[in-house]
């Protein structure tokens, strides 16, 4: 599903974010990328979303080599990836319903399809009763659940969650992780980037540990090492 082959990312000023990273993620897998701040986790996410280009190596997603992806092809790539961020990233001028619908609208889904899918995904995250509210009218945990709903709406092949529990308390964090597990159970590949030890240890799934931009550990049923 996702392949990194000898990928390095060097920012101007010789700042090395990732160094010779080799990573293969199979379809339907749940993988956690862990590491301390500044170890290259977010750079990895940015490379997957084509926000950044690798300095060396190759990246492919679902057989599509995105190493030198053309600028105009980026929207097509992003429509195939669900993304959950630490700071939620909801559109403030749209209701919860409209936020989820937006991901479908950019993909060109019909109105009928949107009216069918959005309530379904909002139901999955338990927010069907609050769909007419604006983001600032719900809690942080609820906002993050809307983001998960949005990332699910267009049935992505892969879901990338970058520190999804970073701004949440332990109860909300557990809810979000449960949601991600549920999504993974439906067959979606989930890539979780986190430095939350408790979350990683409870999952008992594959764990890749990054240190100074290098993979120092890749274990099938891993634990948080650092």
């Amino acid at each position: 599903m996702l392949h990194f082959k000898n990928v390095s990312k060097i920012y101007p000023g010789q700042s090395v974010a990732l160094k010779n990273v080799n990573l293969d993620i199979a379809p339907g897998e749940f993988i956690s990328i862990v590491g301390q701040s500044g170890t290259g986790k977010t750079t990895l996410v940015k490379l997957i979303l084509a926000e950044e280009r690798p300095s060396k190596g190759h990246i492919s997603i679902g057989g599509w080599d995105i190493t030198n992806i053309k600028y105009r092809e980026i929207p097509t790539l992003r429509k195939q990836i669900g993304v959950v961020f630490q700071d939620f990233k909801l559109l403030p001028r749209k209701t919860l319903f409209e936020n989820v619908a937006f991901a479908l609208q950019v993909a060109g889904e019909t109105k009928e399809k949107i009216l069918e899918i959005v309530p379904q995904v909002l139901k999955i995250v338990g927010l069907e009763q609050k769909m007419d509210r604006f983001p600032n009218q719900v809690s942080g945990g609820e906002q993050q659940r809307v983001v998960v709903a949005r990332s699910l709406a267009h049935r992505p092949k892969i879901l990338v969650a970058d520190e999804p529990t970073g701004n949440l308390d332990s109860i909300n964090s557990r809810d979000i992780i449960e949601l991600l597990k549920k999504i993974n159970d439906f067959g979606t590949t989930v890539l979780l980037v986190t430095h939350n030890r408790e979350v990683v240890n409870d999952l008992r799934k594959r764990v890749v540990t990054l240190e100074d931009g290098v993979i120092i550990s890749d274990r099938e049923r891993g634990k948080y090492l650092l």
Partner: peptide, 16 residues
């Protein structure tokens, strides 16, 4: 500006 960034990350084209 944040809203624009979010739209792009969700897969919206520049025109959209």
């Amino acid at each position: 500006r944040d809203e624009i960034g979010i739209m792009k990350l969700v897969g919206a084209s520049n025109w959209f």
